[in-house]
């Protein structure tokens, strides 16, 4: 009896011990993983928190406001002085509205153009399709800065430089070339869906607007998100096209960049104001990104796999 019991129990016990061992090591590795993640999070948030802290920094030396970079991470005084100065002594409110305008207009145009091209390249077979695809790839490889000077003079010949409209044109005109991700998405839509609609007598236009677009919400949002946030981040093209002296029509990126860098506008004592401006710009964009996270991830993944 005992022998049999031993025979039966021992393996069980062994298994039990093994399971516990595995559980312990599992728990240990989980703990380690969490620790690692906390550490990485700290590293990734370090600069972001620094900017936030400094946008609220309010320090004085002998009654003079100190806005230059300092070596202590946590400010010695907090307040809203930077924001007050940002909105009352600089053109920041104006820049913000300019950017909002440019971003809105160019995201509507870009999204329409990108999706149109992507749909054509994916679902409509026509003679020059391959030629267009190859041309698009080749053109996309030329460094954009080089054409910047030429673009400036083309716009000028059209009488458009130094206007926000010119900036919208530049941001949207070439946007159709970035159709790959959306094309990848449309490729997945089964052709049978389109063919059956055609058998029902639908025109190509109806198929696109009534059948394809309604099921393409993720890719529409992804494209729109990127097109909308672009103008908030670009400080190179905008600077050349809007001109250095037209501060009235600058975008936030150009205005803030000039606040701390390049030329005599740059006043090191405005660094904390730059931080405050950064925060005001970052909040809507980051919120948008986080709200649309799901679609953004979908787009990134699709783009990566399709190449």
């Amino acid at each position: 009896m005992i022998k049999t019991e031993d025979y039966i129990k021992n393996p069980l016990k062994e298994k039990e011990v093994e399971r516990k061992k595995a559980e312990r090591s599992e728990r240990f590795s989980t703990l380690l993983a969490h620790l690692g993640l906390v550490l990485l999070t700290l590293v990734w948030l370090y600069p972001i928190v620094w900017i936030i802290l400094h946008s609220f920094r309010e320090e004085y030396r002998d009654g003079i406001f100190v806005g230059i970079v300092v070596s202590h991470y946590i400010p010695k005084g907090f307040g809203f002085e930077n924001f007050i100065r940002l909105f009352t002594t600089t053109l920041f409110p104006r820049w913000f509205l300019n950017t909002l305008f440019v971003a809105t207009a160019s995201f509507i145009l870009s999204t329409m153009m990108t999706l149109s091209v992507a749909y054509v390249m994916s679902k409509i077979k026509f003679k020059q399709r391959k030629l267009f695809l190859n041309l698009a790839i080749i053109l996309g490889l030329f460094p954009g800065f080089m054409s910047m000077i030429a673009i400036y003079y083309i716009l000028k010949s059209l009488g458009l430089t130094e206007t926000l409209f010119a900036l919208i044109l530049v941001y949207s005109a070439g946007s159709g070339l970035g159709f790959y991700v959306a094309k990848g998405f449309f490729d997945i839509i089964p052709n049978s869906l389109i063919e059956s609609a055609r058998l029902d007598g639908a025109t190509n236009a109806t198929i696109f607007t009534k059948i394809v677009l309604p099921i393409s919400k993720p890719i529409i949002i992804y494209t729109a998100l990127l097109a909308f946030t672009g103008p908030w981040m670009d400080f190179i093209f905008a600077r050349v096209i809007l001109g250095e002296t037209n501060r009235q029509i600058h975008t936030v990126a150009v205005g803030l960049y000039y606040m701390v860098h390049g030329s005599q506008y740059a006043d090191g004592n405005q660094f904390t104001m730059f931080a405050a401006g950064s925060l005001v710009v970052a909040i809507p964009i980051v919120t948008l990104f986080l709200a649309m996270q799901r679609y953004y991830i979908e787009g990134v993944t699709a783009g990566a796999v399709k190449g």
């Binding site: 990734w44 948030l45 908030w232 981040m233 400080f235 803030l256 710009v281 964009i285 980051v286 948008l288």
Partner: peptide, 8 residues
């Protein structure tokens, strides 16, 4: 968050 923050 770090992707959403403008690089400049």
């Amino acid at each position: 968050l770090t992707i959403a923050l403008p690089q400049f």
